[in-house]
Write a protein that binds this DNA or RNA. Structure first.
Length: 475
DNA sequence: TTTTGAGTTGTTCGA
DNA sequence: GTCGAACAACTCAAA
């Protein structure tokens, strides 16, 4: 009897363009996921997503004739134990790039090799591996534009692989580690179940990802370059959580984009591609700096004295800062596990620059509440806003939440959707209710500090304070 | 080795 | 209302 192979799923919960599956095609296989929380443990929203995504993957595998099994515990012992029990010839998996995962995967690889099982890892998550996109002397890029130029100048990436037509299930070996049910992982929130808003907003799983891509290309791509900054319009792809869990591969996205767009959409397609480029850049940074989420990428920021402000932080998390656009964003995040890109920047900037609270606190909050909480994108983006990251925003770039609101949510549609207590306030005042005449507020049913907070910090004061604090860094 | 142009997403102020 | 300059200097990447 031929030895089975193991396909170990990770951040690549799909069948399409899945190199490990393709490598296993035609052979009896064990298709497994290991729930291993000893690396960076998932936040609540991501756990909710994972639960749905694993369920979808299990069904998809079963529909092809395979069987999907879940293990729980440390991958570096479970995967070799399973391989041993099954007498597996190979273990195939998609790479992960978070600091703890890189070490973990190295360990798995070494153990398997010692036991005569051939380990083989593949790129399932990125257009290119981080180590492929480096400068002439092999150093990782620190600035996005040259990184992306180089990325695009390299030989074309391989085309995406088709999903396997049929899978063959190997029997679960007798003395293998115990399988657990999906429910036993406890990923679905109970007491209370806060996931109603998420369920309404999303369809986790590969089919949902592909549907989302199609919808985006059909409906939003033509205006993407012009409208992607508008949180009041459905102008973004909203693919990020699907990408986070690898329900769709970036190579599939690019291939579909290239076959779908015509010359009229060229600028929009280019812009969208660049956003995937930022994702690649974030992974490049993470790969070079495994502690990206905890240590300032620019050393001079190590000594920056952030404020300890639990009250301010709580107001921020609850969407009660008194700045409507910030509050709308934080409530959208809490309710749907998602936040529009521009509002992410504004909300993050507010926490760091207006409140002078450590970006790590914000990063951790987003990690817990975003469905797309990504080990690379999340810390890289927070550090970008903080100014401590690679190719960072200049320190004097401090968003004015009122101006940003007037610019990108001019009718206040977005604010009204998420801050209903301001719903009846005229657009003229919707982004700065404290400036509205008393009678206007009264007519709209708004009483500052009772129905809606007054600003917890004055913009001009906060801006000055941040500039002074940040200027001391370069001195 | 040295030089040079450039670097995601902004705001404010004064003319 | 509009427009350009200032906000700091620094470091990166390529020529």
């Amino acid at each position: 009897m031929t030895r089975p192979v193991i396909v170990w799923f990770g951040d690549d919960l799909r069948l399409d363009d899945h190199a490990p599956l393709a490598a296993a095609e035609g052979r009896a296989g064990l298709y497994v996921y290991v729930h291993d929380e000893s690396a960076r443990a998932l936040g609540g929203a991501a756990q909710w997503w994972l639960n749905r995504s694993l369920a979808a993957l299990g069904q998809a595998i079963a529909a092809k004739g395979g069987r999907f099994d879940i293990l729980s515990g440390r991958a570096e012992s479970l995967i070799p134990a399973l391989a041993r029990a099954a007498g597996a010839s190979h273990v195939f998996w998609g790479r992960r790039y978070g600091g703890a995962w890189v070490e973990k995967l190295k360990g798995v690889k070494a153990t398997l090799a010692l036991e005569g099982v051939a380990p083989k890892s593949f790129n399932t998550r990125l257009l290119r591996e981080p180590w492929e996109v480096v400068g002439e002397s092999g150093q990782p890029y620190k600035v996005f534009t040259p990184f992306w130029r180089r990325h695009r100048g390299l030989a074309p990436t391989p085309p995406p692989l088709p999903a396997p037509t049929r899978l063959v299930a190997a029997p679960w070996p007798a003395d293998a580690p115990a399988r657990v049910s999906l429910a036993a992982l406890g990923l679905q929130p109970t007491k209370p179940d806060w996931s109603g808003g998420l369920a309404q907003a999303w369809k986790p799983g590969e089919a949902g990802a592909q549907a989302r891509l199609t919808e985006f290309l059909d409906a939003a791509l033509p205006n993407y370059a012009d409208e992607r900054d508008r949180p009041d319009r459905p102008s973004t792809s909203r693919l990020s959580p699907h990408l986070r869990f690898g329900e769709i591969s970036p190579r599939r996205i690019v291939a579909t984009l290239e076959s779908a767009h015509d010359s009229a959409n060229a600028r929009a397609a280019e812009k969208f591609l660049t956003e995937l480029g930022w994702r690649e850049f974030a992974y490049s940074l993470l790969y070079a700096s495994p502690d990206l989420a905890t240590r300032a990428w620019q050393p001079k920021f190590a000594s920056f004295a952030f404020r300890a402000d639990q009250t301010g932080f709580l107001a921020w998390t609850k969407g009660k800062t008194g700045y409507p656009l910030v509050d709308a964003g934080m409530r959208e995040l809490w309710s749907t596990g998602f936040l529009h890109n521009r509002v992410r920047m504004i909300a993050a900037s507010f926490l760091i620059k207006h409140l002078l609270i450590d970006w790590r606190q914000g990063e951790a909050w987003f990690w817990d509440t975003l469905c797309d909480a990504d080990e690379a994108n999340n810390p890289a983006s927070w550090q970008w806003v903080a100014g401590s990251g690679a190719d960072a925003a200049p320190y004097f770039r401090i968003f004015n939440p009122v101006l940003q609101g007037e610019k990108f949510d001019p009718e206040g549609i977005y604010v009204r959707r998420w801050v209903p207590e301001l719903a009846r306030l005229d657009s003229r005042w919707i982004h700065a209710p404290w400036r509205a005449p008393k009678s206007v507020l009264a007519d709209a049913g708004v009483t500052l500090d009772r129905t809606y907070p007054a600003p917890i910090v004055d913009h001009d004061f906060a801006r000055r304070r941040a500039l002074d604090a940040l200027a001391s860094l370069s001195a």
